[in-house]
């Protein structure tokens, strides 16, 4: 998505990314970024927490108005309700990121791409 944001911006469309993988987005380098320190899958707020989601989307719109230079990031001052234990276990062998079937789908997806390329 960072690459898409860059391309849109190069072609005259202002963008803002709302995301949870801060290091990946900032390593790439994007114009505007709202960092939400939540598990992958909930960048725009906790499920069913409408007020929190409104706050995050509002911050993204604010950033569109206030940023004057690229690599402008804001960090949402929010904490995941159930605590930060997920940070210790995400992408570890104790908690495989994809289940067995999902790994198969991932491999199939890679194979599809190889076929698309051929």
């Amino acid at each position: 998505m960072s690459l898409v944001a860059r391309h849109l911006e190069e072609n005259g469309i202002p963008t803002v990314i709302i995301g949870a993988a801060r290091d990946i987005v900032e390593h790439c380098g994007v114009p505007r970024f709202v960092f939400v320190d939540f598990p992958l899958g909930s960048p725009c707020g906790e499920p069913y927490d409408v007020a929190m989601q409104q706050r995050i989307v509002g911050a993204a719109l604010d950033l569109l108005e206030t940023a004057t230079a690229p690599r402008t990031s804001v960090t949402m001052p929010l904490a995941w309700t159930k605590g930060d234990a997920w940070k210790e276990t995400v992408f570890t062998p104790e908690q495989p990121f994809l289940s067995g079937d999902q790994v198969k789908n991932w491999e199939a997806r890679k194979q599809r791409y190889r076929e698309q390329k051929a």
Binding site: P39, G41, C44, E46, V50, Q53, Q54, V57, V90, S99
Partner: peptide, 21 residues
């Protein structure tokens, strides 16, 4: 399928695709 299924769910679209918001 690539999300932290141990910590969250994709049941509420607005938590990742803020259409209503």
């Amino acid at each position: 399928e690539s999300f932290d299924r141990y910590a969250t769910s994709l049941d509420d679209l607005n938590s990742y695709l803020p259409l209503t918001r």
